[in-house]
């Protein structure tokens, strides 16, 4: 199951990581799920509440998630995933990312930002049915 999004949205989420460098950026992806994949229709930038350690941690306030979910539904969209950046670290999920991942069936997009410039962007699909069998599976990003 691939992650599909427009060039504009792809550029947008990468640019967000450059703007917040050396801190981590984070955001919510709204769209639809089909048999072919997850289609991203809109991005919602979120504030990183981890001001104590924003260079290597992110946390999205639940209120922002609820607001995004409400707004998305009005347009017929659901939350299909999230994105964040890894300043001066690879675009690979970390033990912290994995431990804190609970949105099964959703995509977790990570962009490596090196010295302020967005480099590799990867996506991982959270699979499984619960905390005991969850896994991050690499996912193709189809920029359309």
């Amino acid at each position: 199951m691939s992650l599909k999004l427009s060039q504009q949205l792809y550029d947008e989420l990468r640019a967000h990581g450059e703007e917040t460098y050396p801190h981590e950026c984070c955001g919510i992806m709204l769209g639809k799920t089909s048999d072919e994949g997850l289609h991203v229709a809109a991005l919602v930038r979120a504030g990183n509440t981890r001001t104590d350690s924003a260079h290597n941690r992110y946390h999205i306030a639940p209120q922002e998630l609820i607001k995004a979910q409400r707004e998305g539904r009005k347009a017929g969209y659901d939350i299909v995933g999230f994105y964040h950046s890894h300043p001066d670290h690879p675009a690979q999920w970390s033990p912290t990312d994995f431990a804190e991942a609970h949105w099964f069936g959703c995509s977790y997009v990570i962009t490596a930002v090196e010295k302020g410039a967005a480099k590799i962007t990867n996506s991982f699909l959270l699979t499984g049915k619960g905390e005991d069998d969850k896994a991050f599976e690499p996912q193709t990003i189809a920029v359309e």
């Binding site: 919510i28 609820i66 949105w103």
Partner: peptide, 13 residues
């Protein structure tokens, strides 16, 4: 009532 799992993470330990 809204049930909303948390979203968090970070690049390293």
């Amino acid at each position: 009532l809204t049930i909303i799992p948390s979203i968090a993470g970070g690049c390293c330990r």
